[in-house]
Design a binder for these strands. Structure first.
Lengths: 237, 237
DNA sequence: TGCACAAAAATCGTATGCAATCTTTTTTGC
DNA sequence: GCAAAAAAGATTGCATACGATTTTTGTGCA
């Protein structure tokens, strides 16, 4: 499913699989917005749901906590993260810093097979944009994130890829929370432009396009603090 | 102790403390080279050493595994990471990408109190350089890392600070493994220069100095594959 | 002596139990 | 009737137990 999984698989298929699997499923659910921010993820519930003991469920939740997708409070439990506007800004500031460099690195390493993968990815995005409904919208956000992960995997730096995995996941949460949902179609054409720059190995152009792309995504957010979510959070919802 | 701890404390003092504490102690030991790369960290041993059950020890090891300081193999256990030359290159490539940006961000936010903290940090570094012996050398590597973490905390982005924590820790491992140990004194003068740029809020200069600084650190490494370590690793030492 | 195979020890993966903590409900006093 | 206290319930933190897997040790045979 996830682009990054393919790259990682060789490295950590040897680690304990069950918690990993649960983490991946929960992450997908969070990123897809099937689990709303603030939702309680009790160890027991997760355990029974995936048919494992609390020990394994707990390990999965701990992993998600490291990635910033879940917030854990001592003696209270784990909750789907509810990023504040400030956190959202930090996520995008991080991406602005990292992704143009990733685009440059990818230009230097992109192969013909990668271009094919990018084209397939673009087609996938196009499919969901054409469709309507909340499910298509979710898939669209996910596909858009996968594009950035594909780029990071082409760049060939496993550490940066992991950072990007986290940033993309958190971005999806932020977009789901604060997105005005207007300019998502825009993103697709910008992705196309970046692939074009990659194809012609114009690293300067790729870098610039990426920076603008991130700016556009962030510009589509409405990061003004709203009373609604704050109240909801205060009421422990 | 750690600069970053102060920044973090507000955020994650609520999480389970015991595993966190053990993780910090183990991380310090790894970064200080008191635990050599490849050393086995058995759950039971760590547990008895810190007087906790295997459950807690395991959680601490899992955290270190996420940070890349420990490598875990299923049904075999956890080992202090033994970064390959390729991993070392990726660590420094990541730093080259991130840290100049952090320097720029720090320039825009640095306050008078921060400058005081930087000066104190520089003094600390100077002390260890003057001293001799392996202990002073370890402290020197650690102090040098703390400088970069202080800069990241001034930059005011919690996500980037966490990334830098990981990169600095892994860098320390890499330097301990591959460092030619010639140019460490150099680093100090470069740090001084960066603080100067910060003081005059010259973000362009700070960024350039940082980039050169990282290049110099990496240039001091001998990343040629050696038979020695490979053999040692093969022998599971 | 050297090698193959089996038994033993050590270690990990996971489930479960108990105490501590937090939340909710009930009870009690005003 | 309402507020505060107390008890009940739920959930987490941690320790421990047991089966599974790996590593080591020991023994028999060539």
């Amino acid at each position: 499913m996830n682009i990054a999984d393919q790259v990682y698989s060789a490295a950590d298929s040897a680690t304990q699989d069950r918690a990993q699997t649960i983490r991946d499923q929960l992450r997908d659910a969070i990123v897809d917005r099937r689990l709303a921010p603030g939702t309680k993820l009790s160890e027991g519930e997760v355990g029974t749901l995936f048919d494992v003991s609390r020990t394994v469920a707990r390990a999965a939740l701990q992993m998600l906590s490291f990635e910033g997708l879940v917030r854990t409070e001592r003696n209270r439990g784990a909750f789907v993260a509810n990023p504040s506007p400030e956190e959202a800004r930090q996520v995008f500031a991080s991406r602005r810093l990292i992704e143009p460099g990733i685009a440059i690195a990818a230009c230097g390493r992109v192969a013909a097979a990668d271009i094919v993968a990018f084209k397939a990815q673009l087609d996938e995005e196009g499919r969901f944009i054409a469709e309507r409904g909340p499910h298509a919208r979710r898939s669209e956000i996910k596909a858009s994130g996968d594009f950035h992960l594909l780029l990071a995997s082409v760049a060939g730096n496993a550490i940066l890829l992991r950072f990007m995995e986290e940033l993309v996941a958190r971005s999806s949460l932020v977009i789901a929370l604060y997105g005005r949902s207007g300019a998502s179609a825009c993103g697709h054409s910008e992705h196309t432009g970046i692939v074009g720059a990659l194809e012609s190995r114009d690293s300067g152009l790729a870098s610039r396009l990426m920076l603008h792309h991130i700016d556009h995504i962030e510009a589509d957010l409405d990061l003004r603090v709203r009373a609604g979510p704050a109240l909801r959070e205060a009421l422990n919802f």
